[in-house]
Design a binder for these strands. Sequence first.
DNA 1: GACTTAAGCGGACTATACCCCGCTTCTCTC
DNA 2: GAGAGAAGCGGGGTATAGTCCGCTTAAGTC
Lengths: 202, 202
Amino acid sequence: MDGPVLPLGPPRAERADAARNRVVLLAAARELLAEQGAGKVTMDGLAERASLGKGTVFRRFGTRAGIFLALLDEDERVFQERVLSGPPPLGPGAGPVERLVAYGRARCCFLVEHQEVARAALDGRAPVPAGDGTLSRMHVRTLLGQVNLAGADVDALALQLTAALEGPLLLYLSTEDAVAADDRIERFARSWQDLVERVCRA
Amino acid sequence: MDGPVLPLGPPRAERADAARNRVVLLAAARELLAEQGAGKVTMDGLAERASLGKGTVFRRFGTRAGIFLALLDEDERVFQERVLSGPPPLGPGAGPVERLVAYGRARCCFLVEHQEVARAALDGRAPVPAGDGTLSRMHVRTLLGQVNLAGADVDALALQLTAALEGPLLLYLSTEDAVAADDRIERFARSWQDLVERVCRA
DNA sequence: GACTTAAGCGGACTATACCCCGCTTCTCTC
DNA sequence: GAGAGAAGCGGGGTATAGTCCGCTTAAGTC
């Protein structure tokens, strides 16, 4: 009746076919994305491209936004690596303010590069506003904690700074003018640096 | 052939029936919103409630998000009034930092109160990310300009602060726990004050 | 007050996200 | 390697955003 008693540690490994399909789907999604842009990636189209059923696509990703979230997640992993164990000042080894500045710049580049996907990953009606940004928030939160900020609500501040960093790219700035992207990044990074240094100065 | 020569100043006033219908539609939208929540407001449902054709709804608002943008806009107007010509410190008459602090608190309340609508007004695939937030941005921009901030990029800073103010409520915080809303507002407002004062101190 | 014209209207039509549920395939156990 | 049970799959079904285009009607013109 009860083979392995309470085997609920890891609820169950993902089945091999499911894993295979996920890989196939993500690859297909990247193809479609590259070929036609995020707006043209449809669930049906993706299913067909991957030679799978539409139901499978939804089972994997839950929602359209989920696809882009998954894609973003993949890329995020690489980025996270650099942050957690890469060379300073982005990685550990530099002072917290310096790392915050570096993080902002790097994150900003990352978001500009992945802006299309990041935007598409936002799901208007998602009950939980997407775990997106959570990683940023935690990292900012950690670094802020290492700065001596008398009387500040570090959690709230981290939330606000994260929003200051990511919000503009996710909400306010048009995707259109990719032309001046480099200028924008530079300006943005500088402004972030200014903001962080103002907030953190004794 | 050319009756009034180039009468293109005001392109043409809105036709009476159109104006009437807009009012009807907005009222119907508020009813549906109150009765069933933003998620349940559909274009068809709205059209039916207003006893109008669906085409009319789209002609008026262009997009689903447009409805909520219009609703938000109405409320925004009242809010804006208080900011532009109400009593200080929110209105004119106080110092810029003081006004920024007051603005943050007021805006935060406003957004919490209208969070459902504000979120629904975000349109994932909008080419222009919604003029939303623009008003906030301009006001913050103006006040920041009145503070003496040596060497700061005031425009960029305004964008970031606006995002710090609005982003969390639009992107990161769940709508769910309306229970602790008051606490959240208070905490948020305090943190905003802290942020602004840190940024603006000499 | 009839005439003209363009704005407005309506609702059938299309595209697409998302649901559902019977069937298939994997995986684990003996 | 056979059996049992769960996980996964597929694709038809539904709901809804958004388009289109011929008809209606408001608002000036003579």
